[in-house]
Design a protein around this nucleic acid. Structure first.
Length: 854
RNA sequence: GGGCCUGUAGCUCAGCUGGUCAGAGCACUGGUCUUACAAACCAGGGGUCGGCGGUUCGAGCCCGCCCGGGCCCACCA
């Protein structure tokens, strides 16, 4: 320990972020030491933020939580593996690139190596080749990631930036393709041609996990279907445009009204197609008229009916979301064909209007449409309702069709330590509610392609049943520009040649491998052995069903084990009005602006006060409190160090000093336990409460003594106690306030505080010896009474008191600190203590201010 | 409709397995230039702990019902 020559005249928070961020970078403070063994390491599967635009305050909030844990574990002596990833793979980047540059991908165009996007995005998007498109995706992602990295450094994340990855980089692509090939080899990946939820804007299939419901206006249309006996069956539908796709009319088997319908047929309105009347338990008698038309396909229930009742297929919705040009099978009559022509090629919206006109004209629309609001399925990033289109897609088994696998994955969830524990229920609810396997193929461009090709027969038709697989050694591959083993590029698309699988993987199919990607799976076996399975997966609760579950699925398949031991689930940021903070609002307050205005420590303080898993209000007030705390740390450190830092634990003999250290030992113990349980908020609360009373009471009490008013020995005890307490408190705050604690630590200590040892309650207790924490309370109570006496008389705290009498059960306790109390209260006359021994009487203080001077 | 979370001073929140638990900070009011800090310090007034029952010697803390807020899922003719 050196002299306090490092204490500045006027301590300030200004510029701490830049100064220490640079220093940490230069010193490699957070560099991962890969010579350490697995049991010495704490590894983190950092969430890769979507690199599509701007960070918002939610990122600052949740990434701080992870950093709190990382810093705590590092101070506990664990070597922390804390990488950073960027999720730049997928639709968000594509969409941002389209808008940013004013381009769109046309995979049929040839690559133009000289292409540069227009300076200003044109109104009409410029079509570019797939390769040009991907190059621009990479370029913009790199720019965004640079900006994100600056914010995260300024925020003080203790990431080792040498361990960074992108979900589109070669390592990620190879890992995703390798994992897929192994899934395929084990039978966990398969392809199937089936009705698929389809986004007509993006023209891609989407998975169950990416759906959301939105309330949309609609209308019931009561339609007449005609029976052979001349009677009608009335059916309410919200989708009259699908009458042409109707393949049956269904009702509940117990519905007496429709008993005669079952086994007979009806003719559809307008088109006059004869369809069977069928019974199925999913038909609900209370809905509409109790009878429904089954279309291929209007919704997922239609798919169930179609499959289970083995109905015909009469698809009319194309990939583009428009009505197909040609009528489906079954619409044979001239009238039907003519009617169909009216809707062919139309969008859903237009088709519905025209269909209603046709129905009205034919008299088969009974009454007028009755407007309603009803939930409609959307792709979570989409703008138009999903349609259902039959396509060939790749699936990964996730238990959605296999009760045994599902049970095993639920069991995996129980092996995992969830913080907070109740988040496990969300996982189980999701897994138990799965209704199909994981659809992983997407008809998009900017993503990881499937590492396979299909041979073309002599007729030029692909054989999907015998794909040509890439070899693991060749990964990553791009089947759209590379030829498969045993073929040459000129055979692409030719009879007897091959075609590449045109699809890319769902972005979750890559990000479900982040522990493997970051850990160096099959790329750096040494590293992988040291960090995998990881210790922690931090993430938000809204992506338990996607990211967390997907990662468990992949690790279970490949390693038959969990990918990590702990999952820390953070909450969301709420607007002051208690609503989830929208992206638009979150972006009004940019993270960098927030950090610059309040200081990173202050914003971190606000984040740290949000308990794990709890949604937290965006609260500038908390940040101001955090800033005040950081300033207090500067001033208190300056003061204590100004008294002379004394690393002499044996000098601490005064009962009050020992009491303070004993109480601090309790605080250390509580903070440690809280951090071990991932409850950083509780740890902070305990530390902060102690710190303020340390500053307001203890410092005031011992100030005089520390100056030497009662001799060198008494002063040495005070100084040694203060030094030790300061050192401990600086370290307790270090995870939350990394900048200011590093600053004050540098005034008197060697090395970074963030590599310093986390304080030990036991060692503190050794120094505190017989210190009694209750003494602190007793003395504080007396001090408050002395102050109150002055405050009520509007006296300065410097005013002298003629005397005071302390009575109560703990008066004797407080008498031990009589001299300190006398000094802090400026009592010039007698100060007496009498233990009245009455447990029901609290400690009272009679203050004699009669002769008080000013 | 099912699951989970949540409702404590004007605001943001603590209250760990039921017994000084009615708290903290902010805000508010009134003081104080006190030689670490006036972007500070000192003191004070604020709540029948969403509602109604129940268990208990004793309940913000446990149970039931109801009301309000949030998230997830299901439904979506």
């Amino acid at each position: 320990m050196r002299e306090n020559g490092g204490v500045p005249e006027k301590p300030s928070l200004d510029g701490l972020e830049q100064r220490w961020a640079r220093r940490w970078e230069d010193d490699g403070t957070y560099r991962f030491d890969r010579t350490r063994t697995r049991d010495e390491i704490y590894s983190i599967d950092t969430p890769p933020p979507t690199a599509s635009g701007l960070l918002h305050v939610g990122h600052v909030f949740s990434f701080t939580h992870t950093d709190l844990i990382a810093r705590y574990q590092r101070m506990r002596g664990r070597e922390v593996f804390y990488p950073m990833g960027w999720d730049d793979n997928g639709l968000p980047t594509e969409r941002r690139v389209q808008n940013y540059y004013g381009i769109r991908c046309d995979p049929l165009l040839p690559y133009d190596p000289t292409f540069e996007p227009p300076a200003e995005p044109p109104k009409q998007q410029v079509p570019v080749s797939r390769r040009n498109f991907i190059e621009l995706c990479l370029r913009l992602a790199a720019e965004d990631e640079q900006a994100f990295g600056e914010v995260f450094r300024y925020l003080g994340l203790s990431v080792d930036w040498n361990h960074s990855y992108q979900t589109v980089d070669a390592g990620s692509r190879a890992a995703a393709q390798r994992a897929f090939l192994r899934n395929f080899a084990r039978g966990e990946a398969y392809q199937a041609e089936a009705p698929t939820l389809w986004d007509v804007t993006f023209r891609t299939a989407v998975a169950q996990a990416e759906l959301e419901d939105r309330e949309r206006p609609g209308a019931y249309h009561l339609l007449a279907f005609h029976r052979g006996d001349g009677g009608d069956v009335q059916i309410d539908t919200t989708r009259p445009e699908l009458v042409a796709a109707c393949v049956a009319v269904v009702a509940h088997p117990d519905d007496a009204r429709y008993r005669s319908l079952f086994g007979s047929t009806v003719r559809t309105p307008v088109f006059g197609v004869e369809v069977p009347g069928v019974a199925h338990a999913l038909a609900e008698p209370e809905k509409g008229t109790g009878a429904a038309m089954v279309c291929t396909f209007g919704d997922l229930t239609d798919v169930t009916w179609w499959r289970e009742l083995q109905l015909e297929t009469r698809a009319i919705v194309g990939w583009d979301g428009r009505i197909a040009a040609d009528p489906p099978p079954g619409l044979d009559s001239a009238a039907a064909v003519e009617a169909y022509a009216a809707i062919a090629g139309a969008t859903m919206h237009t088709a519905r209007e025209r269909m209603v006109d046709l129905l009205r004209t034919s008299g088969e629309l009974i009454g007028e449409p009755r407007p309603i609001t009803h939930p409609v399925k959307f792709y979570e990033r989409g703008e138009k309702p999903l349609e259902i289109v039959t396509t060939r897609q790749w699936y990964l088994r996730n238990g959605g069709r296999d009760p045994d696998l599902r049970a095993r994955l639920v069991a995996r969830g129980r092996e995992l330590s969830w913080h907070p524990a109740f988040m496990r229920a969300r996982y189980e609810n999701w897994v138990e509610g799965l209704n199909g396997d994981w659809l992983v193929s997407r008809q998009r461009f900017f993503g990881v392609p499937f590492p396979l090709w299909y041979p073309l027969g002599s007729d030029g038709q692909p054989n999907y049943d015998e794909p040509i697989l890439a070899s693991e050694a060749a990964l990553p591959v791009d089947p759209s520009s590379e030829a498969p083993p045993g073929f040459a590029e000129h055979q692409r698309g030719k009879p007897g040649g091959f075609i590449g699988d045109p699809d890319v993987m769902d972005t979750w199919a890559t990000s479900s491998l982040t522990p493997q990607i970051a850990g160096g799976w099959e790329r750096d076996a040494d590293l992988f052995g040291r960090v995998y399975p990881m210790d922690l997966r931090p993430q938000a609760h809204d992506i338990i069903r996607t990211w967390l579950f997907g990662t468990v699925v992949r690790a279970d398949a490949e390693f038959d084990a969990l990918p990590w031991g702990n999952a820390a689930i953070s909450g969301w940021i709420l607007d002051p009005d208690r609503k989830k903070m929208s992206k638009s609002k979150g972006n009004v307050v940019t993270p960098m602006g927030l950090l610059e205005e309040h200081g990173s420590d202050a914003v971190r303080y606000w984040s740290a006060s949000g308990r794990p898993g709890t949604d937290t209000a965006f609260d500038v007030g908390q940040m101001k409190i955090g800033r005040r705390l950081a300033i207090k740390m500067l001033n208190a450190s300056k003061f204590v160090l100004g008294l002379g830092a004394a690393d002499e634990p044996t000098a601490v003999f005064d009962p009050l000093d020992r009491a303070m250290l004993a109480r601090l030992a309790d605080v250390v113990q509580r903070a440690t336990l809280a951090f071990d349980g991932y409850d950083y908020a509780r740890a902070l609360e305990a530390t902060e409460t102690f710190f303020w009373s340390f500053c307001d009471d203890h410092l005031e009490l011992v100030k005089d003594r520390a100056y030497g008013s009662r001799g060198p020995q008494a002063a040495a005890s005070a100084r040694a106690g203060l030094s030790l307490a300061l050192s401990v408190q600086q370290r307790l705050f270090a995870p939350v306030l990394p900048f200011v604690t590093e600053e004050v630590w540098s005034w008197w200590q060697e090395g970074s505080i963030h590599r310093a040892r986390w304080p030990s309650a036991d060692e503190l207790r050794d120094v505190a010896a017989d210190g009694n924490p209750a003494l602190l309370d007793a003395v504080a109570t007396v001090l408050v009474e002395l102050r109150r006496a002055k405050s009520e008389r509007k006296l300065s705290m410097r005013a002298e008191l003629a005397g005071a009498a302390v009575r109560g059960p703990r008066a004797g306790l407080a008498s031990v600190a009589a001299d300190d109390l006398r000094a802090a209260g400026r009592i010039v006359g007698p100060l007496t203590f009498s233990d009245n021994g009455d447990a029901l009487t609290d400690l009272t203080v009679d203050v004699d201010v009669a002769d008080a001077g000013r």
